[in-house]
Amino acid sequence: MDIKIVEKIQKLLALSESSNEHEAQVSMLKAQQMLIKHKLSLKEVREFKTFNSAIQEKKSTVSFTKAKWKSKLAELIAENFGCYHFFKTRYTHTITFFGREEDVAVCNIVLEYAVDCIDSVVKKLRYQYAKDGYSTRGLENDYAIGFISGLRKKFDEQKKANQEWGLVLVKDSEVVEAYSKKKFMRIIDTNTTFQGHSKVFEKGFEEGGKFSISDKITEGEIDGTLRLTEAMGGA
């Protein structure tokens, strides 16, 4: 039995218990497809005890200097997928996740996907605001912190509605111990404040609440292989 395949199915099954109806349905469908493809039973997957994967740190493709909202987004994602986050700093601050291998991979996928979603909407908003003669100063920040607030509310509701979901997200004790031994040379200021675009914040809040990790995990297959498999180093 391929441990990585089982772990992916287990994660999809955990997502299938989400309070978000669409996410739950998509995740269960994908889990069922993988069970059939790999000739596994639901009972086998639920009862299979996987060995803990290696603890690692991995840089994302996301960095920032002034866009401090990216650090807030990374913090929220790390909190909800069993990891820590910190920054590799040279000319910019590159977001890095620390945790179990598969959890770090998921954090990177979700962060990069969320940033792409935010950037795409902000680009359209900037165009429209500039066209209408309005200032775009602080617009990106306000949409992003709205999105993060909406996503946080969604995560909190999922944990409240499903105790097992909350347990899945708890940091592994070995990860906690390993992280406690790390030493950092400096503290990065990541404070950011609302800039006054109320409607933009509200739009971000609404869309953050609809954001779905399963949209990315199940975003098509290439020759029958999940894109998540590639991100996790192959099955």
Rank of each mutant, 00 (worst) to 15 (best):
E207Q: 15
E44S: 06
Q56L: 14
Y129W: 04
K123F: 10
K58H: 08
F86A: 06
F147A: 04
I77A: 08
L15S: 08
R46N: 07
G220E: 03
A78P: 11
N80W: 02
I55T: 08
R126V: 03
V168Y: 14
E207M: 06
A67Q: 14
S198C: 00
K39W: 04
I217A: 02
V122D: 02
A130S: 12
I95D: 07
R152A: 00
Y143K: 08
F87G: 00
R90D: 14
A178P: 00
V106G: 00
W69Q: 05
Q128F: 04
L167N: 12
Q56E: 13
M232W: 13
E157P: 00
G166C: 06
Q56C: 09
K72T: 00
D156I: 06
G99W: 09
E140H: 09
K203V: 06
K154D: 01
K59W: 01
K182M: 14
V104L: 01
A144S: 14
K199T: 12
K123H: 12
S60E: 09
L139S: 03
L151F: 15
K11F: 00
V121G: 03
E157W: 02
M232V: 03
V26F: 12
K49P: 02
E102C: 01
L139T: 04
N52M: 02
V170K: 12
L76P: 06
F81H: 15
